[in-house]
Nucleic acid binder design. Structure first.
Lengths: 198, 198
DNA sequence: GTCTATATCCCGATAGAC
DNA sequence: GTCTATCGGGATATAGAC
């Protein structure tokens, strides 16, 4: 063995990321010190700076990795698909993707304000891109007469907020399976915009 | 004049509360120092402690005041009212009450994790009480055959999350009036739980 | 009621030994 | 690659003058 236990830098880096994500999610970026991160990652604080130039970058990389992964995994559906089907695909994808990434969801919602302006612009543009893909589905559905929507932008925000609300409280050991949750909320989302007779 | 300018303690207390709310909402509790609060309230830091024993109490009082006010203003509708009408009353009330209290909404969502355990229990029980009033409406509506709901608790959370998502982005100078927003989202909320033919 | 000064502690980040 | 020690600063909270 050429290396002592725990000296593999790839593993250490991963451990630091994981610990930082966990602590930022639980206590908030500003309330978590580099010393605490180091301690939880079984390091001294000096060693942290071999893996990140500063605390800000640690947060930024977590957020960027998450958004990149989200956009990479979201594959726009076939152009032929009907609007209601598209919306269902989107909502189910959104839930399935995020349900096991609750810590990322937390920091994405709460810690954008702690990014530098430059980093914020970067992450926020990725988020806008994702939101826009839902807006396109809603616009398409409205134009095709499938949906009854007064304001596409606010409706998109409302749907995403609704779905995220579920993520925040869903527990895998709860009384509902992932499939149940997907089904329930994609149904609610669809119904909330569908055309109804009056 | 027996008092110098700004020495009225009631006014000073109000000013401190307002400044703290504003800063906590904007930057987060942990990122705001007592020095910053004092400075924005035109005081030196020592004077702050005449009005609050510590920073934690400042946050707790803001949250408690908000929740007390919410529960006091939410008057349960007449027992005779039909479920769909009740839900509409709730959603419109929720939006109207919160729309001008966005800073309170922010800290209610983001800063609960910064409360001591005891303070958290207190605030959280008030929040549960409010959520329960929506759950009762949903349960009532389902039992009466008005609503199609698989899980009352998660549905209540989804609806509140949806409504709060709107609050976060709504601007009074935007293209939609308060009435428009109330109407759009109470409609979406209702449709998301209503019974549909398949 | 407000100020200034200070006690005590923790912060992010870096230097240099091993 | 990790450690210990430390710099410079800012944190909460308190003491005591006015």
């Amino acid at each position: 063995m050429a290396r002592t236990k725990g000296s593999d830098s790839k593993l250490t880096e991963l451990r630091i990321r994981k610990v930082a994500l966990n602590l930022f999610s639980q206590y908030g970026y500003a309330a978590v010190s580099m010393r605490k991160i180091a301690s939880k990652a079984d390091l001294q604080v000096g060693a942290l700076y071999l893996y990140t130039p500063n605390k800000q970058t640690l947060l930024f990389n977590l957020l960027k990795t998450h958004m990149d992964s989200l956009l990479k995994n979201w594959v726009v559906e076939n152009i032929e698909t009907a609007p209601d089907k598209r919306l269902k695909i989107f909502t189910k994808f959104h839930i399935r993707f995020h349900i096991n990434r609750v810590e990322y969801v937390n920091i994405s919602y709460n810690e954008l304000k702690n990014l530098t302006e430059e980093n914020f612009e970067h992450v926020n543009s990725l988020r806008s891109e994702y939101e826009k893909s839902l807006e396109e589905i809603l616009t398409f559905g409205r134009d095709q007469g499938y949906f009854d929507i007064k304001d596409v932008k606010l409706t998109a925000l409302a749907i995403i907020a609704m779905l995220n609300g579920v993520l925040k409280w869903y527990r895998t050991d709860g009384r509902l399976s992932l499939c149940d949750v997907e089904e329930i909320y994609s149904e609610m989302a669809y119904k909330s915009v569908m055309v109804v007779d009056n």
